[in-house]
Design a protein around this nucleic acid. Structure first.
Lengths: 235, 235
DNA sequence: CAGTATCCGATGCGATACTG
DNA sequence: CAGTATCGCATCGGATACTG
């Protein structure tokens, strides 16, 4: 980054200089979520190019935000936030709270599409709340325009320690059908709406296994910010 | 801004999309300081071009961060933060605190030069703590390399309601001589150091009127964050 | 004072291809 | 898996000149 500095005597501007370059905060958020591997970070922040991610990580390492740890035994490389980056949590929480309470839901979620929502859903699954047996949940996004892949299958296998999500029919019997829109599901996860609310408004339909349907609010976590007062609700 | 959106279901990224465009936060800070006029904002954020400031203000107005109020009587135009922008204060405070406590002072102030420091000094003057009579304080910056204008005169006139600052000799008798460096004075204002401390370390010398020298910690305010614990001190 | 209009340059960034 | 290397463009933004 040979970005021109602001050159002000002001701690906020200093923070801006460090945090403003594109993807910096998203990378930190991803590390915060526990991701440590290059390609996982890449997917997590949404298709940043390898070249740019590589550069950013180096820059962030130079700034003391990120630590790169190479495991000589396995040859793998993990990235972690430094103390300095962890200390950003209060600021990032404040930003999240601001966005949730001050930006209207429809604007906030205007960019939501099926695939990105499902990527978030994947992270929000509470595995322990899903049945021990094999179970298949199919999400159907009825958005306009229709997404490239309108269907997603969430497959729980008894042996696995995490459910699979795929956009191509795995050819299994489906236990629970979820019919919704990307914005509605996104709003539920962000805490701007709720499963109940979206069902009432006719934007979420569950059919199939009644147990799975009833426990959806347990096996699908909502954002940690969902409990905030004053979130701008999706009408 | 046709800036490519992040496209993530994440309130932090949403905040980033709104706040990351260059100068956005600096403009908000300036409005926060009470500045309302176009050219004052311009100077306050440090020579942003008129074209860009104009565009940014429009964008921020469209985003609901800024309100533009035209006084039909006088024809003047004032800008104010909206409620939405005021609600950013906790986040901006958190960022300031982070930068002060986690970024080393020498890096934080590496861009400090005499003219920008004096611009901040101007805002930090507590007029009521200066004598009622005419008084002249001369700042001499002994930086390396020497600044374009190494001297600044702060002139208090009995009638005026605010002191003048100029970089050309007004030709008055000087009451107090302040000899220092841009980094030292910047550090004092940011609360990374103190008048006492810089005097002890030989980076600040006061000579002339003993009363003015003694009261410097009253007529020169320090940042509101100066009281924070754990600020990285300028050794 | 409060901007427009224009121009141009740097570079940030994305896309793709390729490597150990 | 974890990157490098290259390319090319869009756009962001700085400088300057000009206007009501």
């Amino acid at each position: 980054m040979t970005r021109r500095p602001y050159g002000l005597i002001c701690p906020i501007s200093l923070a801006c200089e460090i945090l403003e370059p594109r993807w910096t905060i998203q990378i930190l958020t991803e590390l915060w979520n526990g991701t440590t591997r290059f390609n996982d970070i890449r997917k997590g922040v949404g298709n940043i190019s390898t070249a740019l991610l590589s550069r950013r990580l180096k820059e962030m390492e130079a700034l003391g935000l990120v630590e790169r740890i190479e495991d000589n035994a396995t040859g793998t490389i993990d990235y972690f936030r430094t103390e300095k980056a962890i200390n950003l949590e209060p600021a990032m929480n404040a930003l999240a709270e601001w966005a949730l309470c001050n930006i209207e839901a429809d604007i906030a979620l205007s960019g939501a599409d099926a695939s990105t929502v499902m990527w978030v859903v994947r992270r929000m699954i509470v595995f322990a709340e899903l049945p021990r047996r094999r179970a298949v949940i199919r999400f159907h996004f009825r958005d306009d325009p229709p997404p490239k892949y309108p269907h997603y299958w969430l497959v729980v296998e008894p042996g696995a320690d995490f459910p699979e999500i795929c956009s191509l029919d795995p050819g299994r019997d489906v236990d629970l059908y979820v019919e919704t829109g990307a914005v509605s599901l996104g709003a539920i996860i962000e805490g701007r709406s709720s499963i109940e609310r979206e069902k009432e408004r006719g934007r979420l339909f569950l059919s199939g296994d009644p147990g799975l349907a009833r426990s959806m609010d347990r096996w699908l976590r909502t954002s940690v910010y969902a409990a905030l007062e004053g979130i701008d609700q999706l009408s």
